Simulated assay, not measured.
Amino acid sequence: MSPWEVFAVKYADRNARTRADSFIFDDNHDAPHAMDYFMWLLRAGTRTILVDTGYDDAEAAARNRPIRLDPAAALAPFGLTPDDITDIIVTHLHYDHAGGLALFPNAHLHLQAAEMAYATGPCMCHDTLRMPFTASHVCEAVQRLYSGKLTFYDGSADIAEGVSVHCIGGHSRGLQCVRVHTQAGWMVLASDAAHFYENLQARKPFPIVVDLQNMLDGFDRLERLASHPSLIIPGHDPLVRQYFPQDLADHIHRLDAGPTQDVTL
């Protein structure tokens, strides 16, 4: 099995946040706590898989959450255009992970069935649960389904040799992480199963949650899936850019060789 190259691609950040926005249980809740927004690119030979899509300028304006790079432009240092992307693993359908689906018209989507059921079901009658979703993004996923460009999974499944998805839930009903065979061992892109290293290492849940038990159980699952805890990559932690080397451009960090320093908080 050939190892995959794995890249974190930062397209946005948000600094006007506090620790109360990141942790349910935290005594220092008023302290600043910044967040980065990433997509991830997997590459092995001629095969490329994009994990999540970020969100575009229209969504940024609608939510007043500016982006630094259009997600399609963020991939330019790889020599890729949006039309080159043929496979996208959608970890979940929240706006910041599926908000750029329409930018990649040729892509086949890989999604948990539980996530589509959640995003189109009775839970969306509640404003609090609906808040991280945008209807047009969900509709884009439905359109891919009807055009034969979406595959559903129920739990764990192989996407390619050395790449698998695993349903975690918790933050969103069908949230899935991605396990990748790399030169450093089995790496796990946690996405929002662990927004920050501290969520995982201190077992502190993130406040946006549909099933708290699944979120807490998911921390254990992430650790079982990875060859080493340092190979679990949180979905939004600025520390990723400190622990892993820059590659190709300022906004791209290469992950597959492992961290360059201890990731224990």
Score class of each variant (00 low, 15 high):
4 W>P: 05
6 V>R: 01
8 A>T: 08
11 Y>L: 06
12 A>I: 00
12 A>S: 12
14 R>T: 12
17 R>S: 09
19 R>L: 10
19 R>N: 08
22 S>K: 11
23 F>S: 07
27 D>R: 14
28 N>Y: 14
28 N>K: 13
30 D>C: 08
31 A>E: 15
31 A>S: 13
32 P>V: 04
34 A>Y: 03
35 M>N: 09
36 D>F: 13
38 F>W: 12
39 M>C: 05
40 W>F: 15
40 W>S: 14
41 L>A: 10
41 L>S: 02
42 L>S: 05
45 G>K: 03
47 R>P: 09
53 T>M: 09
59 E>M: 11
60 A>K: 04
65 R>H: 13
66 P>H: 00
67 I>D: 09
68 R>A: 14
70 D>F: 00
71 P>W: 00
73 A>F: 01
79 G>L: 02
81 T>C: 10
81 T>I: 08
82 P>Y: 01
83 D>T: 10
84 D>N: 11
85 I>L: 00
88 I>R: 01
90 V>Q: 02
91 T>E: 03
93 L>D: 02
95 Y>D: 11
96 D>L: 03
96 D>K: 08
97 H>C: 13
99 G>V: 00
100 G>P: 12
101 L>D: 05
101 L>V: 01
103 L>I: 09
111 L>I: 14
112 Q>S: 15
112 Q>C: 10
113 A>P: 06
115 E>L: 11
116 M>D: 06
116 M>A: 07
117 A>K: 08
119 A>K: 08
121 G>P: 12
124 M>S: 10
126 H>E: 15
126 H>K: 15
130 R>H: 11
131 M>K: 15
132 P>T: 03
136 S>Y: 12
137 H>D: 15
138 V>D: 04
141 A>E: 08
141 A>C: 06
146 Y>T: 14
152 F>K: 07
153 Y>T: 15
155 G>A: 07
157 A>E: 04
162 G>Y: 00
165 V>L: 05
165 V>H: 00
167 C>K: 13
169 G>F: 02
170 G>K: 00
170 G>M: 00
176 Q>F: 01
176 Q>D: 08
180 V>F: 01
181 H>A: 14
183 Q>G: 14
185 G>R: 01
185 G>T: 02
186 W>E: 09
188 V>D: 03
191 S>P: 05
195 H>D: 13
196 F>T: 08
197 Y>I: 03
197 Y>N: 07
198 E>W: 10
198 E>V: 08
202 A>C: 12
204 K>Q: 15
204 K>M: 12
207 P>A: 04
207 P>Q: 06
209 V>K: 02
211 D>I: 01
212 L>E: 10
212 L>R: 08
213 Q>T: 14
214 N>A: 15
215 M>L: 11
220 D>A: 06
221 R>I: 04
221 R>W: 04
221 R>T: 12
224 R>N: 09
224 R>S: 14
226 A>G: 04
227 S>D: 13
235 G>V: 00
237 D>Y: 02
237 D>P: 09
242 Q>G: 11
245 P>T: 04
245 P>C: 03
245 P>G: 04
247 D>W: 12
247 D>F: 07
248 L>V: 06
249 A>N: 11
250 D>F: 06
250 D>M: 10
251 H>S: 10
253 H>C: 10
253 H>S: 09
256 D>C: 06
259 P>I: 03
260 T>S: 07
260 T>K: 07
260 T>Y: 03
262 D>T: 08
264 T>K: 10
264 T>F: 13
